Simulated assay, not measured.
Amino acid sequence: MKDSIFIYSPLYQSYKFHQMHPFTQLRVEVTLDLLKSLDAIQEEEIVYPRVASDQELLLIHDQKYIEAVKLAGEGKLRQEEALGYGLGTEDTPIFPNMHEASALLVGGTLTAVDYVMTGKTKHALNLGGGLHHGFRGKASGFCIYNDSAVAIKYIQEKYGARVLYVDTDAHHGDGVQWAFYDDPNVCTLSIHETGRYLFPGTGNISERGQGKGYGFSFNIPLDAFTEDDSWLNAYRQSLEEIAEFFQPDVIITQNGADAHYFDPLTHLCATIKIYQEIPKLAHEIAHKYTNGRWIAVGGGGYDIWRVVPRAWALIWLEMKNIQVSGSLPKEWVDRWQKKATVPLIPKWEDPSPLYPPIPRKQEIEEKNLNTLNKVLHFIRENKPKRNRTNANESY
């Protein structure tokens, strides 16, 4: 049994809106090349994704929406109808064969699920996934189909397992949250920049689920300009307590890399330090509660040269228990500098000094701590009683 697998196909590059669009799957190729340059991944650890079937997409998405995506990719969907489905917008433009490209990304995450849930591997990484803004009948925020939501429903129906979904993208994981808002067998945690300043504008601490799902949805909206220590404090404390009460059978982590201070679309001020710690704690949680079952996907991240490859490579390196520091491989830096639009940083660590001191640093940290404490208080006061005898015996 392999301890970890990396899901990838060159066809991931077909999920491409246009040349100037900030969302590009080139990030996955550059990350994989970095791992190869480090001799940190073997060819037999790279697994080709399958394409998600319409039946699998229907676990989350409406039939009419899937048909609209197909027609749009063939240039046969009228503009006014397309806009009703969130297609053809500035964020989510129409491109040729968009259904096929999107279904492949979903299939990549489903491939990861099957490998992990059947015991072929402990950990699986699909950086082409993490499209957390997709809704049942509408595209949103660069996301056409929601691979994580489809994967969670697939896990429930095929394997009967309880899923903890952890989203550390700077944008709220709205599509996944709403898909399982009334489901007590899926627990979602999203740590993101407050929606006061950033798309999609949701993810308040008051969004806690509804009906039987009340108390299984958690949000920690962080203030703009949040730095490493405050970010990591919120992450560690919330994830440790949520995992302890929920006792998941499998963990899925969405690993957007857009909380970094270089990111052009967000307002957080984290460094590469948080991307060293995010997978480390996820790894610990997986081995403590799920017998190691951990599926990781990609997400946002729009500084595709200096931030995303390093941040995403660190997920795989954590899965493989490989430690790195110091300089990046010179051949990798030289190879991609020819294409990069900014000077590449030739080391894992960020440059220092990073930026002028944040004037509101103490105020920001106090606001974040107050938000975290409200979430932790709610967890402690409303701890669900988990009866493990009701769980699938195999987990």
Rank of each mutant, 00 (worst) to 15 (best):
A139D: 07
G108I: 01
G129C: 10
S140G: 10
H132G: 03
T111S: 12
C143F: 00
L110W: 08
G107K: 04
I144F: 00
L127I: 15
A112N: 14
D114T: 06
L125S: 06
G128K: 01
G134A: 15
K122E: 12
G128C: 13
G119N: 12
K120W: 11
R136I: 13
Y145W: 04
V116H: 10
L104T: 07
A103K: 07
G119S: 09
Y115F: 13
I144M: 04
L125W: 06
G134I: 00
T118M: 08
A139M: 09
G108W: 04
K120V: 05
L131K: 09
L125N: 11
G134L: 07
G107E: 06
T121G: 09
N146I: 03
F142N: 00
F142Y: 15
T118H: 14
G141L: 06
A139R: 08
Y115P: 02
N146K: 11
G107Q: 07
G128R: 02
H123V: 09
G141F: 02
G141D: 01
H132Q: 10
G108K: 13
N126Y: 06
K122H: 02
M117L: 15
S140L: 04
L131I: 00
G107W: 05
L105C: 02
C143N: 07
V106I: 04
V116E: 11
Y115D: 08
S140M: 08
H132N: 07
S140D: 11
L127R: 09
G107V: 08
L105N: 11
M117W: 02
L127H: 10
G141T: 01
N146G: 07
V113D: 12
L105K: 12
S140A: 14
V116M: 10
G107M: 02
L104I: 04
T109W: 03
V106E: 12
L125H: 13
N146E: 04
A124R: 02
H133Y: 05
G141H: 03
V106T: 14
G128T: 06
T111R: 09
H123L: 15
G108A: 06
N126T: 04
L127N: 04
G107P: 03
G128E: 01
N126A: 04
T121N: 03
S140K: 14
H133Q: 14
V106A: 04
K122Y: 07
V113M: 01
F142L: 05
A103N: 04
A103C: 10
L110G: 08
G134N: 08
D114M: 03
K120P: 07
Y115K: 14
T109R: 09
T118I: 03
I144T: 07
G129Q: 05
A139G: 10
K122P: 01
L131V: 00
G130D: 06
A103D: 01
T109P: 08
G134Q: 13
S140V: 00
G119L: 00
K122T: 12
T118Q: 15
T111H: 05
A139K: 01
C143G: 02
A112P: 13
M117E: 15
L110T: 06
H123Y: 15
T118A: 02
T118V: 05
L125P: 01
Y145V: 05
H123E: 09
G134K: 13
T109H: 03
V106Y: 05
T121E: 01
K138A: 08
Y145H: 10
A112Y: 01
K138T: 00
K120I: 01
V106N: 09
G107Y: 05
K138M: 14
V113A: 12
L125I: 08
V113T: 13
M117C: 14
T118N: 15
H133V: 03
